[in-house]
């Protein structure tokens, strides 16, 4: 009886997953392994992927750099919020969430307006008599866009973990002779590890597959794997190659998160520092 009920309750979600995740995934797999013109089984699409390895590499690189910058920027913010009184915490939490209420596209377009050759920043610089800088179309602009868009995804899991660290553990560390810096490195940081790992994952995964940010903020030499995939489906008209790329990207993300989780559980195993 009880079992039936829970099956009934989870039914809609299971159905949703089936129709909108599993079946499309099957379709992607099908396209990835069939020939564009004849529709017969082939490894050809996957073989062609070697052409895109540099793009894939730079996607991973950009996303990792962004994730690390998010960590460096986000950790102090999360730590600060977690150590405020509860009411202040709620307000600050809301403020971190606030940008997520705006459209992702809009947020990115806003940066275009700022960074353009005759955008707001350059106009301001010219006003001060400084020549225009080349801001848009650079790797820096792409990373800026990623960091700006995904920073909340870093702050929120970090905050959730840090706020749960028992204050008595910090007192215990002080009691055992730790200076404030040592308290941080020997207790707070190791205990924040789960938050750091999930934050990195939450930033890395969407960043590695993004195409919009690099299209708007990047130049021709900052094409990312997301752009390539999009192009295969749209302008290049080769959905089979696009599907193969998607599949590889997905595998890559799985492997990355797998490695990170593994790293996380090792960390908890209790290594004496």
């Amino acid at each position: 009886m009880k079992k039936n009920k829970s099956l009934l309750l989870s039914g809609p979600y299971v159905l949703w997953m089936l129709v909108f995740t599993l079946i499309p995934l099957g379709v992607v797999g099908y396209y990835a392994l069939t020939d564009p013109s004849t529709g017969v089984f082939t490894w050809g699409n996957l073989r062609d992927l070697s052409l895109f390895l540099p793009t894939l590499g730079s996607s991973v690189w950009y996303s990792l750099v962004s994730a690390l910058i998010c960590l460096v920027l986000g950790y102090p913010v999360a730590y600060y919020i977690a150590h405020r009184p509860p009411v202040t915490q709620k307000i600050l939490y809301m403020l971190v969430m606030l940008p997520m209420c705006m459209s992702f596209l809009l947020r990115t377009l806003a940066w275009v307006g700022l960074l353009e050759s005759n955008g707001i920043i350059n106009q301001f610089l010219n006003l001060l008599g400084i020549p225009s800088l080349e801001l848009i179309g650079t790797p820096g602009a792409v990373i800026l866009g990623m960091v700006y868009n995904y920073l909340p995804y870093m702050v929120l899991p970090l905050y959730a973990i840090i706020v749960k660290i028992d204050n008595r553990l910090i007192e215990a560390a002080e009691d055992l002779g730790c200076t404030p810096v040592q308290v941080f490195s020997k207790v707070v940081l190791p205990l924040s590890m789960p938050g750091i790992l999930s934050g990195i994952t939450m930033v890395f995964v969407p960043a590695v597959s993004t195409f919009y940010i690099s299209q708007k903020l990047g130049g021709t030499d900052t094409m990312l794997i997301g752009d390539v995939i999009e192009r295969q489906f749209k302008s290049a008209g080769n959905p089979n190659l696009g599907a193969a790329l998607s599949l590889v990207l997905m595998l890559l993300v799985f492997i990355c998160t797998g490695i990170m989780n593994r790293f996380g559980s090792d960390e908890e195993g209790g290594v004496v520092v």
């Binding site: 008595r168 007192e171 215990a172 009691d175 207790v187």
Partner: peptide, 14 residues
């Protein structure tokens, strides 16, 4: 001075 805390406060990561 060292302290034995209420409910121990042992480090879970060690």
């Amino acid at each position: 001075i060292n302290t034995v805390f209420q409910r121990y406060a042992l480090f879970p990561h060690l």
